[in-house]
Design a protein around this nucleic acid. Structure first.
Lengths: 137, 137
DNA sequence: CTACTTGCAAAAGGTTTGCAACCGG
DNA sequence: CCGGTTGCAAACCTTTTGCAAGTAG
């Protein structure tokens, strides 16, 4: 469990002022055992249920974008119209169930890439994602 | 190069009436040597430049969706807000350059997956995509 | 003829933006 | 105080939809 202090440090180290809103969002995202898959919509719901302070959708989007830029979360590839994010920033892969639109982590050791290509000239690899789409049997 | 007849057969075999619009779109998509990566927008431009007949955007979307359902094109994963499609329906993977928002095919033999996970209970694997994001060196 | 298609414009869904009010350092 | 941040509403962009008119079989 992350202390409030840790969260504030995390924010400061990314040049993000620790405002009430950002601290609350960061808590929801990082103060948990399992990693968290979310969209702007689900994060908004999670943050705005209970008697918590109200955070506007615009701030949710701002903050998610800021956290992504800072490398605290990463965006997951899907072919859905919404953006999906993951609090697990270590390299790992996903199942995507297009019927329920739910993402699941794939254990790191369950995908082994034996060979990957060289990037085109002048480019380097920023990220590699494997997404396995599922359908009902 | 695909003859008009072949295109009409392709449409008929998918239970799609060979209308002027669908034939023109199918020509743009399938009558070419290299595979084609496109979005609704780029396809719309490609189809509506020259003195060709005018095809409305709604028809572009309808047709792309119908071709996708029929298995003639496939959708590619990106984290861009638009949908990207590929006329190459064989299993292969992509580079995605987030700066230019351009996709490039990766040679099939340049990605070797040594191990892939079992799908969750009740599900089967529909598709597997590897996307390598690029950034400038 | 009849059912499937098209095209237009309006609507929808997700995200971004302009700007005044607010607040952290 | 100053400059970064928030919140609201309007704007934006991509995609979908309703419906009247058109067309393939």
């Amino acid at each position: 469990m992350q202390q409030k202090k840790e969260i504030i440090n995390k924010l400061r180290s990314s040049n993000l002022r620790p405002t009430k809103q950002r601290i609350l969002i960061a808590k929801k995202l990082f103060d948990r055992k399992k990693t968290f898959h979310f969209t702007a919509e689900t994060l908004n719901q999670a943050v705005n249920k209970k008697g918590d302070i109200k955070i506007s959708l615009a701030t949710i989007y701002n903050t998610v974008e800021a956290f992504k830029k800072a490398g605290h979360i990463r965006e997951i590839l899907t072919n859905n119209s919404k953006s999906y994010y993951d609090t697990n920033i270590k390299s790992h892969h996903h199942f995507y169930d297009s019927e329920s639109k739910k993402l699941t982590d794939i254990d790191y050791q369950d995908v082994i890439l034996d060979k990957i290509p060289n990037p085109p000239k002048g480019k380097k690899i920023k990220d590699l994602e494997v997404v396995i789409s599922l359908q009902n049997k």
